[in-house]
Design a protein around this nucleic acid. Structure first.
Length: 490
RNA sequence: GGCUCCAUCGUCUAAUGGUUAGGACACGGGCUUUUCAAGCCUGUAACCGGGGUUCGACUCCCCGUGGAGUCACCA
C-alpha cells in the first residue's frame, strides 16, 4: 500500500499545537514508508475564516523544516503556489466537485434536500433535549416524495430561497478498526442526518473531507480523538460511494493542567506562542512528537529523523496527555547546550537586544546557555557582560577573607593576567590551567583568588566561573573591571 | 442526559500473563566545586475499585467508579 497521509486544517486561526502534533505523526508515517504527506486546506466555513491564518500555518511548517509533498507552499516572496497532482488542495477551489458528488448521492437515494429553517431546527433540538433525547434531525423533509422534493428545490431556486442537502443515514450499525484504539462500533440510530451541502453552496466537512480523502488517495487518516464520534458519517459516505475507506487513527488529545482539552484559558494553544517564548523547533518536535508515543523505555531525546524511523502507530497511546511544561524547559535547555557559539547567536536573533555580531555578546550567550531554559531569558542572563558591574562590599569579599586580602589578591592576579597572551585568553581551559597553576605554585587558596576575581568581573553573587567570564569579556575588559574593583576597595 | 473514548508515580511514560513495576521531568539528599548552573550518584513517589479467566494478572473479560470527547447550515 502506498502510504499517503494528510493534514487538513481549517484556516480559522494560528496553527494549534494539537494540529502540529497530528502533522508530526502524519509526517513520521509518510516518511517512514516512503509515502507522501499532503496539506489540504479546509476552508468551507466562510464565516470563520481568519485572514493570515493560512500564511501562519505555512510559516510554521517552514519554521520546523517539516516539508510536505503536495499542497499549498509559501514562496519567499510571500505568494502561495500549489504542488502535487491531486489539486486543487484548497477546498473552496473544488466546489464543483462536491456539488457533483452531492447530486450523485441524491440520485442514489442516499441524500435528500431539507427545507427546514434554522428556527425550526433550534426548536426541535430544544424539545428533544428537554425530554433527554439525543438531538438529531427528525427527518421532516424525508417525508417528501422524490417528485415533491424535486419541485420544491426548483421553486426555492427560482425565487432565491436556499435549502440544504442531508445525508440519509441507513439502518444498521457502523463499525471500524481504529489503528490506535481497535474496534469501535456505533449504532446508526445515534448518527444524525448531517448536512452535506450547506445553503451557501459550500459542502460541509463530512462531504468535502470524504470526497477529498478518496480523490487524493489518502491511505491513513490521522486526526484528534474529538473526531471519533463523527467517523460513522465518513464511513457511511465511503460505503455509499462504493469507495474503500482509509485507515482511521484517532490520536489522543493534548490536555491542559485541568486535564481538559487544551484551551487558551489554561495554556498556550498556538504553536507560534511557543516560538515566541523562546523554544527551539527541535525541542518542540522532540517534546510534542513523543507525547502519546514513546519509542523507548529509557531515552528521552530524539531527533526528527530518529522519530521517523522509530514511529509506530501501534505504539501510540489512547489516553490524553497533559503538557508538562517543566519537561519542555528541560528539553529546550538540552538542545540549547548542543548548539555551537555561532548557532546560538543565530537562534538568539530577535530575542537578544545586544549586537549579536559582537564577540563578547556571542561568548556571553554561550557561557550562559546552561543557566537559561528559553531564548527569552538571555537578555537578562547576559546583562552583566554588557554593563560595568556595581560592586557590593559584602559580596566582593570572600567569606574566609577580608578586604585587605581581597584587594591584594586582585592586584596580584591582575599582574598575572596582564602577562597572559591573547591566545590563552581565547581558550577557557588554557585560561583555567594558567590561573590554577599560579594559585598552586604560590600556595594560595582557590577561594581567596577565585572568589574576588569572579565577583570583580561579574559584580554578582552568583555567576559563571571566572574562567568563563574572562574568556567572554576578553583581556582588556577583564583587566578594566579588576581595576575598578580594586579602586572600589581602596 | 444519549453515544463514544480513556484509566501505571504530581506530570510524560516503559511493561504486550511470571520484573524487587523500569526511565524522564519536577522535588529531596550527596559528589564535584570559589558561587550559581551544568554534569555524575542517589532518595521519596504509581498499577482507580470489585469480581472473574488462569498455576500465575498492571497486562485478558465483566461490572462499577472516575475523567474526557461529542451531540451545529464549525471544522
Amino acid at each position: 500500500m502506498n502510504v499517503r497521509t494528510r493534514l487538513a486544517p481549517s484556516p480559522t486561526g494560528k496553527m494549534h499545537i494539537g494540529t502540529f502534533r497530528t502533522a508530526l505523526f502524519d509526517y513520521f508515517l509518510a516518511r517512514q514508508n516512503n509515502g507522501q504527506f499532503l496539506l489540504r486546506i479546509e476552508d468551507t466555513d466562510r464565516e470563520r475564516l481568519v485572514p493570515g491564518a493560512l500564511e501562519n500555518l505555512l510559516e510554521m511548517f517552514k519554521a520546523f523544516h517539516i516539508d510536505y509533498d503536495e499542497g499549498p507552499v509559501l514562496q519567499s516572496n510571500g505568494s502561495i503556489v500549489e504542488t502535487g497532482d491531486f489539486g486543487p488542495y484548497v477546498q473552496s477551489a473544488r466546489l464543483d466537485i462536491y456539488k457533483r458528488y452531492a447530486e450523485e448521492l441524491i440520485q442514489k437515494g442516499c441524500a435528500y434536500p431539507c427545507f427546514c429553517t434554522v428556527e425550526r431546527l433550534d426548536e426541535m433540538r430544544k424539545s428533544q433535549s428537554a425530554i433527554k433525547q439525543t438531538t438529531k434531525y427528525d427527518r421532516k423533509c424525508l417525508a417528501l416524495t422524490a417528485a415533491e422534493a424535486e419541485a420544491k428545490m426548483r421553486e426555492y431556486e427560482s425565487n432565491g430561497q436556499t435549502y440544504v442537502i442531508r445525508l440519509k443515514v441507513p439502518e444498521g450499525r457502523t463499525e471500524f478498526i481504529d489503528a490506535i484504539r481497535g474496534e469501535i462500533i456505533f449504532d446508526n440510530n445515534e448518527v444524525d442526518d448531517c448536512i452535506l451541502m450547506k445553503s451557501d453552496g459550500y459542502p460541509s466537512y463530512y462531504l468535502a473531507c470524504t470526497v477529498d480523502d478518496h480523490l487524493m488517495k489518502i491511505s491513513h487518516v490521522l486526526r484528534g480523538e474529538e473526531w471519533i464520534s463523527s467517523t460513522p458519517k465518513s464511513l457511511i459516505l465511503f460505503a455509499m460511494f462504493g469507495w474503500d475507506a482509509p485507515i482511521f487513527a484517532h490520536v489522543p488529545l493534548l490536555l491542559g493542567p485541568d486535564k481538559k482539552k487544551l484551551s487558551k484559558r489554561t495554556g498556550d494553544t498556538a504553536v507560534e506562542e511557543y516560538f515566541k517564548h523562546g523554544y527551539l523547533p527541535e525541542a518542540l518536535i522532540n517534546f510534542i512528537g513523543t507525547l502519546g508515543f514513546n519509542p523507548s523505555a529509557d531515552r528521552e531525546i530524539f531527533s526528527l529523523d530518529e522519530l521517523v524511523t522509530l514511529f509506530d502507530l501501534n505504539k501510540v497511546n489512547s489516553a490524553g496527555a497533559v503538557l508538562n511544561m517543566e519537561k519542555l524547559d528541560w528539553m529546550n535547555r538540552h538542545y540549547l547546550m548542543q548548539l555551537t557559539e555561532d548557532e546560538l547567536a543565530n537562534r538568539a536573533e530577535g530575542f537578544v537586544h545586544a549586537d549579536l555580531g559582537e564577540i563578547r555578546v556571542r561568548r556571553a550567550l554561550f557561557v550562559e546557555r546552561s543557566r537559561v531554559s528559553r531564548l527569552t531569558e538571555f537578555d537578562n542572563a547576559i546583562a552583566a557582560y554588557l554593563t560595568l558591574p556595581e560592586y557590593d562590599h559584602a559580596i566582593l569579599i570572600w567569606k574566609k577573607a577580608d578586604a585587605m586580602d581581597g584587594m591584594a589578591q586582585l592586584s596580584r592576579i591582575q599582574l598575572v593576567l596582564e602577562n597572559i597572551s591573547h591566545e590563552t585568553f581565547d581558550n577557557v581551559s588554557l585560561l583555567e590551567t594558567a590561573i590554577k597553576e599560579y594559585i598552586a605554585s604560590n600556595s594560595l587558596q582557590n577561594g581567596n583568588v577565585l572568589w574576588p576575581l569572579r565577583v570583580s568581573l561579574s559584580g554578582l553573587e552568583k555567576s559563571a566561573t571566572p574562567f568563563e567570564l574572562l574568556w567572554a569579556l576578553g583581556k582588556e575588559e577583564s583587566l578594566r573591571r579588576i581595576s575598578l574593583a580594586i579602586n572600589y576597595l581602596k
